[in-house]
Design a protein around this nucleic acid. Structure first.
Lengths: 209, 209
DNA sequence: CTCGACCTTAGTGTTGACACTTGCTGTCTT
DNA sequence: AAGACAGCAAGTGTCAACACTAAGGTCGAG
């Protein structure tokens, strides 16, 4: 419901309503909400209503800093762990997406997401979970609100290409460095974009009447 | 109960027993266990009993790889975010611990834990939570079982000193690099130690009769 | 007219009981 | 004697109801 936009960003989460919405009792809903709290998708304080995260600029920058570190390490590990065949397949898919994708690109779950693929292939289950389960949903949530920024797609393709090339050459140091630069640039573009059009992540102007 | 050793490493977690142990119903116990599952301290599969993690060598290596990436980033951020006064205090405390601590060192929660201090001071709430809340408990759990390895303490002190010095000089690149090397060395020592005395983290030899 | 205390109400925290699944054990069949 | 099937017990998943808390509204006093 959060990812589908059925629950607005700063909105409150009413356990009873959710329970009726799914024809279930409050118990399972409580457990689900607590798992979402574990994933930092909702915040909660004792006896207060649970709220969907608001995704402030600061939150996004923090997430991107964490991604820079962890995805860099995932890239390093994957450069060692992936087989030659898997790397070749990765390059092939990337090239296909580049050719076909510039006009018709399915944003839904992505037919090809390099970051996701690297996280899945890095061989470290804990890192995989952090990137592919915990942070992935937050990024989807953000992208859904504020669309991609123009012009960065082609640049991102080039950077992806260099990353995969470094992995193919079995150069973990370079692969990690390139991935970190890639995410760092994305962070800078993000900050610039946010500052330009102070996107309304505010829940709703309270505006006490 | 897990950290105190009251629940053995591979042991099962019985909700009813825990509930009676704390004079409470099963509801709160379920929620607590689910939070522990979120912290990867217990594993769970549908309708099966919950089990305390077993902390295999592979798990520890994965945790240390993650720490290398994230603590490195935390160190970089802290080198920018911390005030001169805070850094000076950190150096002072480190020196005092070195002088007084070589014989009488309180392992309980630590009067001075550089890694913890950096995590708290890095200014990134998400990284702080990951290091100081999620991974910290797992490391405590591990250290409780397998004591520190001899000889590495003095070396660790030197490495800590260099790290703080780089932070004091406002050199984030160096600080991150030193922290990563520090953790990487600890990982190597850990692996060597584990291979030497295949520590019995196994729950119990099932040994089907 | 404004401010503060009381009350109402929506919503969360907790409880005890019931339904369902799982693994074992004992017995039966081949 | 070995394998399989039914019954049993332990434990988890779910539910509806009760206790408690915090916010919003109302009434009265200054």
């Amino acid at each position: 419901m959060i990812l589908e936009g059925e629950l607005p960003l700063g909105g409150v989460v009413n356990e009873v309503v959710i329970a009726q919405r799914f024809n279930v009792s409050r118990g399972p809903v409580r457990e689900a909400v607590q798992r979402l709290q574990g994933l930092r998708l909702v915040t909660r304080e004792p006896y207060m209503r649970a709220r969907v995260v608001s995704l402030s600029t600061r939150d996004l920058v923090e997430i991107f800093q964490l991604r820079e570190a962890v995805e860099g390490m995932a890239c390093r590990l994957a450069a060692d762990a992936m087989s030659d065949e898997a790397l070749a397949a990765l390059m092939k898919e990337l090239e296909e997406t580049r050719r076909a994708g510039l006009n018709a690109y399915q944003p839904e779950g992505g037919p090809f997401d390099l970051h996701q693929r690297i996280a899945l292939a890095c061989g470290n289950e804990r890192i995989r979970h952090l990137l592919a389960e915990e942070l992935y949903h937050l990024l989807r949530l953000y992208r859904r609100r504020s669309g991609a920024m123009p012009g960065r797609r082609e640049q991102a393709f080039d950077e992806h290409w260099q990353i995969v090339r470094a992995m193919f050459n079995r150069d973990p140091d370079l692969a990690e460095s390139l991935m970190r630069s890639h995410i760092s640039r994305a962070t800078a573009a993000l900050i610039a974009s946010m500052e330009r059009k102070e996107v309304s992540t505010e829940p709703e102007a309270p505006d006490a009447a």
